[in-house]
């Protein structure tokens, strides 16, 4: 497959979770975590997915790698609809897509040695002999920047940043093409975050990986992503090239979101005019009618209260879901 082709395609994806509020409620409440989103990820790119609590970005990532079954819609990998695969076929498909999570410590089994943890994928898929396995694992450990003698040690002997490297090593074990990074640096110290981000970038170049980078640190997402999608209460509001979105945001929410980012630059902070949204994010069990953002939107009008806007193209690779753009 060539670069520039779509490796992952999401079509009208929905994921709802039932939540019971009262014991004898007539209707279960539904958390509409992901509510009809569609986008594609090109091979070799990093697509950033940003949004605040309840926007559904983590759920999207997990649904793509099929940790959750979609409520509706489809996920296509390399053109193949994952829902149509048998269990066995899905298992083989899983070698291509991996996911890394936020908390490095709880991602590693504390009772297993590092060697066992990283060789687990080989064991599960019955690949390689014991000897080749060990060689592979040691190569992976080196690739993520750690020394060879970590093979026999336990996760608790390492720092957060080092553990996250081990998590990445495990994710690379089966030579995947696509990795979902679900807040991989949020739990790490600031100075360590740069280490991990650089590592991910280096690996992407070397191994021709594609990333879905989910994070709430908007500055970091801008740094690492080629394209960015902005989510709010289960919907995508804006999608486009990273620099374009950050320098010329079109959706009112995106503008508000970017306005909220504090910059490590005192003069800029003093002089910038900011228009961050007021009020609170509504609960995903009871989203507002029409455009989800209308209660907080400074330019909302009648149509916004009743009709949900669709994502439409407004320029080169730039899509916005808003009635007023």
């Amino acid at each position: 497959m060539n670069d520039g082709q779509n490796i992952v395609e999401i079509r009208n994806l929905k994921k709802y979770f039932p939540v019971k509020h009262k014991l004898f409620a007539k209707q279960n409440c539904l958390v509409r975590a992901v509510d009809d989103i569609s986008f594609t990820i090109k091979k070799g790119e990093t697509l950033g997915l940003v949004g605040e609590s309840g926007c559904g970005k983590s759920t999207t990532g997990r649904t793509i790698v099929r940790l959750y079954k979609p409520t509706a819609g489809s996920v296509l990998y390399d053109g193949i609809d994952l829902a149509k695969l048998s269990k066995k076929e899905m298992r083989i498909m899983r070698r291509n897509m991996q996911i890394i999570f936020q908390d490095p410590f709880s991602s590693l089994n504390p009772r297993m040695t590092v060697g066992n943890i990283i060789s687990e994928p080989f064991v599960i898929h019955n690949m390689g002999t014991k000897k080749t396995c060990k060689e592979h694992v040691e190569a992976l450990i080196n690739k993520v920047g750690l020394k060879g003698d970590t093979y026999y040690r336990y996760p608790h002997e390492f720092s957060g940043g080092q553990c996250q490297r081990l998590v990445i090593a495990r994710a690379l074990a089966l030579n995947p093409e696509f990795i979902v990074c679900d807040e991989p640096i949020s739990a790490l110290d600031v100075s360590i975050q740069a280490q991990i981000v650089n590592l991910l970038e280096g690996l992407q170049e070397e191994l021709k990986l594609t990333y879905l980078f989910i994070a709430h640190d908007l500055s970091m997402v801008r740094y690492i992503s080629n394209r960015v999608a902005v989510m709010y209460l289960g919907k995508i509001f804006e999608l486009g090239e990273s620099e374009e979105i950050y320098t010329h945001p079109l959706h009112p929410y995106t503008k508000g979101l970017l306005s909220s980012i504090p910059y490590p630059n005192p003069k800029v902070e003093r002089t910038r005019t900011r228009h961050f949204p007021s009020g609170e994010i509504p609960s995903p069990t009871d989203p507002p009618s029409g455009c989800r953002y209308h209660p907080r939107c400074p330019i909302a009008d009648k149509k916004c209260k009743s009709d949900q806007p669709e994502l439409k193209s407004v320029g080169k690779q730039h899509w916005v879901a808003c009635h007023l753009i």
Binding site: Q162, V190, S191, Q193, Q195, N198, S219, M220, Y263, P264
Partner: peptide, 25 residues
């Protein structure tokens, strides 16, 4: 200085490579 170099900076700059601080506290 190292801390400032390891975080993404504000807008209006060409993409500068993040300089992580090696090692741990």
């Amino acid at each position: 200085r190292a801390l400032l170099a390891s975080i993404p900076q504000a807008e209006g700059q060409l993409k500068r490579k993040l300089q992580p601080i090696r090692g741990s506290p």
